Amino acid sequence: MRLCLTLLCLLIPLPALAAQLTLDLGDGSRHWQSEQLLTHPLARDVTIEQDVAYKRTMHYRAVPLAALLEGVKPSDHLQAVALDGFAAEMPAGPLLQPGPAQAWLAIEDNARPWPPLGQGKAGAGPFYLVWTQPQASGIRPEQWPFQIASIRSLAAVEVRFPALLPDPALPDADPVRQGFVLFQQNCLACHRLNGAGDAHLGPDLNLPHNPTEYFQPAFLRQYIRDPQSLRHWPQAKMPGFSTQVLSDQELDALLAYLKHMAGRKPR
């Protein structure tokens, strides 16, 4: 009889464990369980018409992210860290604004899991930073981190990682300086440079060699626009950066920064 009960228990599916979000905002860590967030007083159903991760309209239960960022100021700098090592660097200002572009923390319900992001891939849960009306504030795809595990308050990138800085003697209007800003927005979430950065998803873009040193210029542009068109393999994770995300002028500035940093490797 006891053996039968044991076998019966093994056959009964156990409920999925609630996910936990860690917030480290400078005054100690706080933890939110997904079940708590799903029933948060400010939680509501939101429709995201141009979902960056799923490439289609999606519907989520979400909480305004600003409601969870108690004590954070617009001048602060935040980092969202994903389960796979993706680390999105974000100024706090846009995350705190009530609109027109508004940041929401979407929460996956274990009873209704989100679809996979592709064949053989996991979904965007358990937590996903989504935006309503993102075009109103020029929100970029790298500002939509998914599979979030934690959000933390940190010093700005240039303070934490001086090895990323271009030559201080460059004029303020030099395209390299714009390229440095674009690198932070579009590349630093996955890559390091000169060993500097918090991401672990992609390779270092200057050590041992900078891509401007081994790619022909036309092929490097093609690779950034559509990685799979140059190197195709199913496990690839790098997204393409279309002209809607990164204009030709911005791509010029980003490449100028990379080429400049090829001459600023650590000695």
Rank of each mutant, 00 (worst) to 15 (best):
G99L: 07
A253Q: 11
D252Q: 12
G125Y: 01
R140W: 03
L205I: 13
K55A: 15
A199R: 06
T6C: 14
P113C: 01
V176M: 10
R61N: 03
W233V: 00
Q135K: 13
Y223K: 06
I151H: 02
P113Q: 03
P100A: 15
G179Q: 06
A43Q: 13
L78G: 11
H40R: 10
D27E: 15
P175Q: 11
R231L: 13
L23Y: 04
T22G: 01
D252R: 10
A101D: 11
A163C: 07
P100S: 13
E108H: 03
T6S: 13
M261N: 01
L5D: 13
P175N: 09
R61Y: 03
Q222E: 13
L95H: 05
R231V: 14
T39Q: 14
P175Y: 11
S34R: 02
W233L: 09
D109K: 01
W233N: 10
P203Q: 05
L14Q: 15
P100V: 13
G99S: 01
E70A: 14
Q135S: 13
L69E: 05
A173C: 00
A43N: 08
R44I: 02
G28D: 12
R140G: 04
E158T: 06
L38K: 08
L230T: 13
P239R: 09
Q36I: 01
I148D: 03
L182C: 04
K265D: 06
A66H: 11
S75N: 08
D167P: 10
